[in-house]
């Protein structure tokens, strides 16, 4: 970022290539709508570009980036006036994820697809605060303390939210595993 501030465009390209996918996933998982996620993604990087002149190294770039992203998401939800409820992934979506006929073991593939769908559903059903912390933890690689700072809560609160989120997701996985084991 410092190199980009000095006019090195290549440095920005490297930075963008490294962070674009995790950031996009975070936004998509948070707002659960691809169009909105794309808008927010553009807004976040626009703010990063605009702030390059006054950028100072106070923390990791990750913290800086996800703080902007979190604030953009919050602003978006405030503007929308309600939590944007994305459409639940239905059976057709699961079918799209299924591998082709060339798959050697279609049963296994189906089981994996079902497990993914179950996991995704469990993720979408998490309370927004817990989902926010979980996705941040998974995508940004930041510590709980930094996540607490980004979301504006104490580290213990962030840890507690994460614990609940992980517990629910694990339960969803366990529910599916016996069924898959039976088949």
């Amino acid at each position: 970022m410092l190199r980009y501030r000095k006019g090195d465009l290549r440095a920005f390209e490297i930075l963008y290539a490294k962070h674009k996918a995790p950031l996009y996933r975070y936004l998509l998982r948070t707002c659960r709508d691809q169009e909105t996620a794309s808008d927010l993604f553009q807004e976040v990087w626009g703010k990063v570009i605009a702030s390059r002149e006054r950028y100072e190294v106070r923390a990791q770039f990750n913290t800086f980036l996800y703080r902007i992203a979190h604030n953009c998401a919050i602003d978006y939800f405030r503007r929308a006036g309600r939590r944007h409820e994305g459409r639940a992934q239905d059976v057709d979506d699961i079918a799209e994820e299924l591998p082709g006929a060339e798959q050697a073991h279609p049963d296994v593939a189906l089981s994996e697809a079902q497990m993914k769908a179950e996991f995704r559903r469990a993720l979408d059903q998490l309370p927004p605060e817990q989902r926010d912390v979980f996705v941040l933890y998974e995508e940004s690689g930041l510590s709980l303390e930094e996540i607490g700072k980004i979301t504006g809560v104490a580290m213990e609160t962030a840890k507690s939210r994460l614990r609940y989120a992980v517990s629910k997701l694990r339960a969803a996985l366990k529910q599916h595993q016996p069924a898959s084991a039976q088949t």
Binding site: R25, F41, E97, F119, E138, L169
Partner: peptide, 14 residues
């Protein structure tokens, strides 16, 4: 395994 499952969901890219 929770993390593994999460990252195996999809490789979403912008």
């Amino acid at each position: 395994p929770v993390s593994e499952h999460y990252h195996s969901l999809d490789g979403i890219e912008p």
